[in-house]
Every structure is written in structure tokens, then in C-alpha cells.
């Protein structure tokens, strides 16, 4: 091959190489990869959020969709409303109570599941199942489980003598059913139960991952240093799990705080709004009653808490990076 032919080949290869490898350049690749996420966030998070803020400051309704600004009137009305205050209280109560229970149960479960026993994988899989079920389906299952007449829980309680005329859980009506969803306190308990059932699996799996990440040497050292079981759990494992526990709880808070499915399907906020939460109340006001502006205002009360949680999560993530 002659020298000039070689040079020609080289010259031809140059622009083609640049064309073929343009995706390898970070200043091209980064925007290309980020673009879908940015579009997604603007379309599905940014625009609805702006709309919600606009709506909450106006008098828009399903019947009259023209936006006339009315200042903070919707917020004032919401705050003056007894149902709203119940919903606000319930939202916090359900979230805090369920996450405390989940934290305790998840720690115990994770400790048990981290032990070596036959069928460990199967049990872990079963524990994770509730989390993989679509929430609406799961709650429908609970609706039946807590049914006023056919509840299998009632059946078991009757069999062991806890339910029935004159028994501890008996009621003044027939005494043969607990009516889980008919009394305010029992309905609240039921909603709490379903929230715990729903968020426990993920928390357990997160803690389990955290437990297995504790170096064997550290556990061995604690053993050799004379720590018994409880000292190992409370002085070594739980403190080392704290950061990841925070992650699990923050996830749980977001799930529970914003959830309307459980209340909507299980109790529809009842009886007499005793289990109403912000998300369900926003839906009932804004969509079912048609008062869009009111609904938006109610929903926006979720916002400050979620911003706080998000900030905490980001801080935890950053701490995890620097350690």
C-alpha cells in the first residue's frame, strides 16, 4: 500500500470516528440521559404542583372552571372545618403510630430472619409479599377480612372465646361480631393495622440488608469482648443500623402520610369521618364534591411535611456518601 493511500484512509476515518463516538462524551451524554427524567418531572410533578397552588388560591370548581383569585380564603376555610382538623390529626396519628410499630416489629423480624435456619429464603419471600401486592388489591382483601358479618378474625376470636355475648370484645348489639369498621376507634385501629401490614415488609428487608452489612469481625469482637445477646443487639446492632433505619422510616412516612387508598377502600373516611385523612378528604372535597379549590388547599397541607422528609432523606444520603 502506498503512503498516500494510507493518509487518505486516516483522513476519512477522522470525522467518522468523531461521529461514532459522540455518545462517549460526557457533555453530550449527560443531558441526553437526564432529559427523560426532566420531562417526566416537569410533566407529572411540576405542572400539577403549580396547578394545585393556583387552584388553592382561587375559587375554581367542577361547575365553574374560571380561575378567580381569592387569596388564602380556601386555607382559612379548611382550618375552620372540623372534618379537616380530624383529617389532619388522623394523618399524623396514623403515620406516627404505624411507623413506631413498624420500627419495633421490623427490628425483631429482621433479627429473626438474619439467623441461619432452613427455609430462610422462602420466609423472606413471604415477608416481602404484602409489599409487592398492589395496594388496592391488598386493601380489598382486608375489607373482607374485617367484614362486619363474615370476618375470619371474628370467627377465630369467637372460637377462642374472646367474642360473643358477655365476652371481653362483645358488643351491646348481638355480641357475635366485632364490627371492625363500624366503631370509630375500631375503624381507626383497622386503618392502622393495614398501614403496618403494608409498610412492615419493606422496612424489614431494608433492616435485614443493614444487618448483613455489619462486618462479621465486629460481631465476633463483641462476642469475644463478653457481650451477651441483648448487649449485642442494643449496643452494636441497633446503633449501627440507625442510619438505615432512618431510611426505612422515611420511606414508611411518605407511604403512609400520602396514602388515600387504604382509607378510601376500607372506610371511605367513616364512620362519620373518624378515619378521614388529608389525602382522602382532599379527594372527597375536591373531586367527589366538586370543590376543586378546596381540595387543592387541603392537599397542599401535605406539602411542608413531605418537603421536610425529602430534605432529611437527601441529608442522610449525603452522609452515607461521605462516611
Amino acid at each position: 500500500m502506498s503512503a498516500s493511500a494510507g493518509a487518505r484512509v486516516e483522513a476519512a476515518a477522522e470525522p467518522e470516528a468523531r461521529g461514532r463516538y459522540w455518545l462517549d462524551r460526557e457533555n453530550v451524554l449527560a443531558p441526553v440521559l437526564l432529559l427523560p427524567a426532566v420531562i417526566y418531572i416537569i410533566a407529572l410533578v411540576g405542572i400539577p404542583l403549580v396547578m394545585a397552588v393556583l387552584y388553592s388560591l382561587s375559587d375554581v370548581s367542577v361547575g365553574d372552571q374560571s380561575i378567580d383569585f381569592v387569596g388564602l380564603r380556601n386555607f382559612q376555610q379548611a382550618l375552620g372545618d372540623d372534618i379537616f382538623r380530624t383529617a389532619l390529626r388522623n394523618t399524623f396519628a396514623f403515620t406516627i403510630a404505624s411507623q413506631i410499630i413498624v420500627l419495633i416489629l421490623a427490628n425483631i423480624l429482621a433479627l429473626v430472619l438474619s439467623a441461619d435456619f432452613r427455609g430462610k429464603r422462602l420466609v423472606r419471600f413471604l415477608v416481602l409479599l404484602p409489599w409487592t401486592t398492589p395496594i388496592a388489591l391488598g386493601v380489598l382483601g382486608w375489607l373482607w377480612t374485617l367484614d362486619n358479618v363474615y370476618s375470619p378474625i371474628d370467627y377465630i376470636l369467637r372460637q377462642v372465646g374472646l367474642l360473643g355475648p358477655g365476652s371481653p370484645l362483645g358488643t351491646s348489639w348481638y355480641g357475635t361480631n366485632a364490627y371492625w369498621l363500624a366503631y370509630p376507634d375500631r375503624a381507626q385501629f383497622s386503618v392502622l393495622l393495614v398501614h403496618v401490614w403494608r409498610t412492615l415488609p419493606l422496612a424489614t428487608v431494608i433492616l435485614l440488608a443493614g444487618l448483613t452489612a455489619i462486618p462479621q469481625d465486629v460481631k465476633d469482637a463483641a462476642n469475644v469482648d463478653g457481650a451477651g445477646f441483648f448487649r449485642q443487639v442494643f449496643s452494636i446492632r441497633i446503633p449501627l443500623l440507625l442510619p438505615i433505619m432512618a431510611v426505612a422510616v422515611l420511606y414508611g412516612i411518605v407511604f403512609t402520610f400520602t396514602d388515600m387508598t387504604v382509607v378510601y377502600i376500607l372506610t371511605r373516611g367513616g364512620p362519620t369521618n373518624a378515619t378521614q385523612v388529608l389525602a382522602s378528604w382532599a379527594y372527597f372535597r375536591g373531586i367527589e364534591a366538586g370543590a376543586l379549590a378546596q381540595g387543592a388547599a387541603v392537599a397542599l397541607f401535605l406539602f411542608p411535611v413531605l418537603v421536610g422528609v425529602a430534605a432529611l432523606m437527601l441529608r442522610l444520603a449525603r452522609r452515607a456518601e461521605t462516611v
Binding site: P215, D217, V218, A221, S235, L240
Partner: peptide, 11 residues
């Protein structure tokens, strides 16, 4: 016992 990794309690 002293371990290769020292196994100090990090927290």
C-alpha cells in the same frame, strides 16, 4: 482477640 481488620466499633 485482635482482628486483622481491628474490628473497632465504628459508632
Amino acid at each position: 482477640m485482635v482482628f486483622q481488620s481491628y474490628a473497632l466499633y465504628p459508632h
